[in-house]
C-alpha cells in the first residue's frame, strides 16, 4: 500500500441546525485519483474546503503528510493545489500574468513560474491566449485556466471541485485526459456529481450523501456490491401502485438472482444474465396490464450503487 498523503479524521461541520459533514473519516493514498461522488448539497465541497484548509471544521482534523492543515504552516498548505468550482481569476490580468502571480504567492521564482505556466497553458490548449486578459476568454477557457492556477506551484495533492462542470464537450474531454495524465505523478482528489466522470477517472470513490459517507471503494468493487451483471430499465405506463405491485411480484419470482426496483415510472432489474431473464420479465408484465413505453439494457453504474444505497437518483 502506498503512503497516506491525506488523512481525514472524524470531520464534522455544521451550519446552524444543518449538519453539512458528519463524522467523515477517510484516507487518500499517494498517486491515486480519489473521487467524491454525491448529489448537489451532499457535503462534497464543504469536505474538500476543510481538506485544503479553506474551512475550519467544528470537530475532527485533516492531516497532510501527517501535519494538520488548519492552523498549520504555509509549507503544508502549499503541498495542496486547489481548483475551486467557481472560476476565480483576476479579470484584468492576462493568462500568463495571473499564473505567474499565483506562483509567486507560493514563492515560486518569477522565471520558473512563467516557464511552468507556459508549459501548463500549452498542455491545456491555452498557449495562444497567453497574453489575453481573463475577461476575454470563453467559459471553457476560463475553467481550464482555473485548473492551471491550481498547478503552477507544483503541489503533491491536487483538489479539483467539479472540474468538468460547465465545460463544453471538447473541453471536458481535454480536462479529463489532462487529469488522467496528472494522476501519473500527483495525488488527485476530485468532487463530482457525474457518475460517469467518477467512474472513468477515479481509482477509488467515496459516495457521500447528506453529509454522511455511505461507501468507499473502487468503482468496480462498488458496482459489484450491488451484484455482478447488467441492468434492464423498463419505462411503464400505468398507476404507481400497479408498478409497485408488479415490482414486488417480479422480485418474488426472481428471488436472489435479481434485484428489482421501481421508481419514477421505471422498473429496474439488476441481474447477472439479465438478457435471459427478459422473457420471464415480459410474461409477468403482460399479466399486470401495465404497458411498457420503452426498454433500455445497459451495464450497471455507480448511479445504481447510489440508488441502491439511498433509493434516490444522484441528480434528485
Amino acid at each position: 500500500m502506498s503512503e497516506i498523503v491525506l488523512q481525514v479524521d472524524r470531520l464534522t461541520k455544521r451550519y446552524g441546525s444543518l449538519v453539512a459533514v458528519n463524522d467523515l473519516s477517510l484516507e487518500v493514498h499517494e498517486g491515486e485519483v480519489f473521487g467524491f461522488l454525491g448529489p448537489n448539497g451532499a457535503g462534497k465541497t464543504t469536505s474538500i474546503n476543510m481538506m485544503c484548509g479553506l474551512l475550519r471544521p467544528d470537530s475532527g482534523r485533516v492531516l497532510v503528510h501527517g501535519d494538520p492543515i488548519t492552523g498549520g504552516s504555509a509549507d503544508i498548505r502549499a503541498r495542496v493545489g486547489v481548483c475551486p468550482q467557481e472560476v476565480t481569476l483576476w479579470s484584468k490580468l492576462t493568462c500568463i500574468e495571473q499564473v505567474e502571480f499565483i506562483g509567486q504567492m507560493y514563492d515560486v521564482p518569477g522565471r520558473v513560474a512563467r516557464q511552468r505556466g507556459e508549459r501548463l497553458l500549452e498542455e491545456l490548449d491555452l498557449i495562444d491566449k497567453r497574453d489575453k486578459q481573463a475577461h476575454t476568454l470563453s467559459g471553457g477557457m476560463k475553467r481550464r485556466l482555473n485548473l492551471v492556477m491550481a498547478l503552477v506551484h507544483d503541489p503533491d495533492i491536487v483538489v479539483l471541485d467539479e472540474p468538468e462542470a460547465g465545460l463544453d464537450p471538447q473541453s471536458r474531454v481535454k480536462v479529463r485526459e489532462y487529469i488522467q495524465s496528472l494522476a501519473r505523478h500527483k495525488t488527485i482528489i476530485l468532487t463530482t456529481h457525474n457518475m460517469d466522470e467518477a467512474e472513468r477517472i477515479a481509482d477509488r470513490v467515496a459516495i457521500i450523501d447528506q453529509g454522511e459517507l455511505l461507501v468507499l471503494d473502487t468503482p468496480e468493487a462498488l458496482k459489484n456490491s450491488i451484484g455482478e451483471g447488467d441492468v434492464v430499465e423498463i419505462a411503464l405506463d400505468g398507476e404507481e401502485d400497479m408498478r409497485t405491485r408488479y415490482s414486488a411480484s417480479l422480485q418474488e419470482q426472481m428471488g436472489a438472482q435479481a434485484i428489482v426496483q421501481a421508481a419514477d415510472g421505471t422498473l429496474t432489474v439488476h441481474a447477472r444474465d439479465v438478457v435471459n431473464l427478459l422473457p420471464a420479465i415480459i410474461d409477468e408484465l403482460n399479466k399486470t396490464g401495465l404497458k411498457p413505453t420503452g426498454m433500455h439494457l445497459r451495464e450497471s453504474t455507480l448511479e445504481d450503487v447510489f440508488i441502491q444505497l439511498t433509493g434516490r437518483r444522484l441528480r434528485e
Partner: peptide, 10 residues
C-alpha cells in the same frame, strides 16, 4: 473569490 485562492498561499 480570488482572495480565497490567495488564502491558501504563503
Amino acid at each position: 473569490g480570488t482572495l480565497r485562492r490567495l488564502q491558501i498561499t504563503r
